[in-house]
Simulated assay, not measured.
Amino acid sequence: MWHVILLGFLGGLVGGNALPHFIRGITRQSYPNVLGSGPVTNLVGGWAALVVAALCLWWADLPSHPAAAFASVSVGVLLIGLFHAGPGAFGRATREPTSTRG
């Protein structure tokens, strides 16, 4: 069962990380990436990460322990989503919205 939890978590983490890169790549937008921030590098990096995530989830044999698999994949996706919504890999300067009320 530990291989299901570990590979499920890894598959969710890598797959959740792949989505913003792949989407930015196919919409031709820049996004920070280890290989560069251009659309092509994001597309290729996101695609490669989706392939790795699919392999992790396939090797995990998810049907053998469906509850543990669901939980571990969900936690992996949630954690990488919180990471992207928060500081991200390269940090980001946040701008507070200016209030128009007096």
Rank of each mutant, 00 (worst) to 15 (best):
Phe90Ile: 07
Gly88Asp: 11
Ile23Trp: 11
Ala18Asn: 04
Ile5Pro: 15
Leu62Ile: 09
Met1Phe: 14
Leu57Val: 00
Leu50Asn: 05
Leu35Trp: 11
Arg24Ser: 15
Arg28Met: 07
Ala60Trp: 01
Ala67Leu: 12
Thr27Pro: 12
Leu43Ser: 04
Ser37Ala: 10
Thr27Tyr: 09
Thr98Met: 01
Pro87His: 03
Gly86Ser: 15
Val40Tyr: 06
Thr98Ile: 06
Ile26Pro: 15
Pro63Gln: 01
Phe9Thr: 02
Pro32Gly: 14
Val4Ser: 06
Trp59Tyr: 14
Ala60Asp: 00
Glu96Trp: 02
Ser64Met: 07
Ser72Asn: 03
Val34Lys: 08
Arg24Pro: 15
Leu55Thr: 01
Ala71Val: 14
Pro20Tyr: 08
Phe83Val: 15
Ala89Pro: 15
Pro20His: 04
Gly102Asn: 10
Gly38Asp: 09
Pro39Met: 10
Leu10Ala: 10
Phe90Lys: 09
Leu62Asn: 02
Ala85Phe: 13
Asn33Arg: 05
Leu7Ala: 02
Leu10Pro: 08
Thr98Asp: 02
Leu50Asp: 01
Phe90Val: 01
Trp59Ile: 10
Ala69Cys: 02
His65Met: 12
Val14Arg: 03
Leu62Asp: 01
Gly102Tyr: 14
Val75Ala: 13
Leu10Gly: 01
Ile23His: 07
Leu79Gln: 09
His65Trp: 07
Ala69Phe: 03
Ala54Gly: 07
Leu82Thr: 01
Ser74Ala: 11
Thr94Val: 03
Ala49His: 04
Leu13Asn: 05
Met1Thr: 12
Val73Gln: 00
Arg92Ser: 13
Gly81Pro: 14
Val77Lys: 08
Ala67His: 06
Val40Ile: 10
Leu43Asn: 06
Ile26Phe: 09
Ser74Asn: 09
Leu82Tyr: 05
Leu13Gly: 03
Pro87Cys: 00
Asn33Gly: 09
Thr41Asp: 07
Leu57Trp: 02
Arg92Gly: 09
Gly91Leu: 11
His21Ser: 09
Thr41Ala: 10
Val4Arg: 08
Met1Ala: 13
Leu7Lys: 03
Leu62Arg: 00
Leu13Gln: 02
His84Tyr: 15
Val34Pro: 14
Ala53Gly: 08
Gly76Cys: 07
Arg95Phe: 04
Gly36Asn: 02
Val52Lys: 00
Gly76Gln: 03
Val77Glu: 04
Pro32Leu: 14
Val14Asn: 00
Cys56Val: 00
Gly76Thr: 01
Ala53Glu: 04
Arg24Trp: 13
Leu6Phe: 11
Ala54Tyr: 02
Gly36Gln: 03
Val44Met: 10
Leu82Pro: 15
Phe83Met: 14
Gly11Ile: 06
Ala54Phe: 04
Arg95Leu: 06
Ile23Val: 14
Ile5Phe: 10
